[in-house]
């Protein structure tokens, strides 16, 4: 019975969003990412059920929710690290879920930052950043290094350009990972719990970089448990529960007067803890 409620909530959410984005006056920006009726299951387990979501250019969308609610899977569907079972993921004009789509070309424009950093262990910091630009953009090595140094400087790690990635702290690794993604000059950045593997006292240095990125107008989709970040930085907060979007809206509204009982329950636990 609660499941039915959730579906209703998800349905209303999508109904509320669809006219807003599709029916805006001509000339207004098209959504950069439009997710329609997305479904994904792992075996018998339905992880995502009928997800509808629009991300406008320059928007910061934060996805919150309990573990196992499908947040990360949704994010990974946006750059096709997980293949959706049904539905569409439009990025600009291309449908990522279509068969035989050139995923590699599209991924160049979608940066991703992982919970476990995933820096290339066989390279130093600078090579981590220049690998993709040199390989894919046919950029000269010197030029790629120049770009990489600019981004490393912006995350405060220019001095570590020649360092072995295995010798960095977690916070440093994650900042390198962000710089690496930025080197491809992406239109969209995906963050998959970027601070969950970090010590509490160094979470701040990573969030600071993300905050600056948001201020510069980067379009971002962030899966996080950092409620303060969701509240202060994002333009829209999406609360996911059991594979559906239970509620979404402006952070001011969602955090102060959540409508869905599950949202209230979830936020209450977070705010007291």
């Amino acid at each position: 019975m609660s499941e039915k409620n959730l579906n209703v909530a998800a349905g209303t959410g999508s109904v509320g969003a669809a006219p807003g984005s599709a029916g805006t006056a001509p000339g207004a920006a098209e959504p950069m990412v439009r997710i329609e009726g997305l479904r994904k299951s792992f075996g018998d387990l339905e992880v995502l059920r009928d997800i509808n979501l629009d991300v406008m250019p320059g928007q910061v969308v934060t996805i919150i929710g309990a573990s196992g609610s499908g947040k990360s899977t949704l994010l990974r569907c946006i750059n096709l690290l997980e293949t959706p079972d049904a539905g569409h993921v439009w990025f600009h004009d291309a449908d990522l879920a279509a068969e035989h789509v050139d995923v590699n070309r599209l991924r160049e424009k979608i940066g991703m930052v992982f919970q476990g950093f995933n820096l290339f262990n066989n390279m130093n910091v600078l090579d981590n950043c220049t690998l993709a630009p040199v390989t894919l953009k046919k950029m000269g090595k010197a030029e790629a290094q120049e770009v990489a140094m600019r981004h490393l400087e912006s995350v405060g790690l220019a001095d570590f350009a020649r360092a072995d990635v295995n010798n960095l702290s977690g916070g440093q690794k994650q900042r390198v990972a962000i710089a690496r993604a930025l080197c491809m000059q992406p239109d969209l950045m995906l963050f998959d719990e970027p601070t969950s593997a970090l010590d509490p006292e160094i979470v701040g240095e990573v969030l600071e970089v993300m905050r600056r990125l948001a201020a510069e107008g980067m379009t971002m989709v962030v899966v996080t448990h950092e409620m303060a970040f969701a509240k202060n930085v994002s333009d829209e907060v999406v609360f996911m529960d059991k594979g559906v979007i239970a509620e979404k809206g402006a952070p001011s509204k969602l955090f102060s007067s959540p409508e869905h009982p599950r949202t209230r329950e979830f936020l209450a636990r977070y705010l007291e803890g």
């Binding site: 290339f120 993709a132 894919l136």
Partner: peptide, 25 residues
């Protein structure tokens, strides 16, 4: 680690490039 491939693929490298530059070494 599988994350190595995922990171390489997320940057737009093809399966072949991710193998040759990241996984195989």
């Amino acid at each position: 680690d599988k994350g190595q491939t995922e990171a390489a693929r997320s940057l737009g490298l093809s399966q072949w490039q991710a193998m040759a530059k990241v996984v195989f070494p």
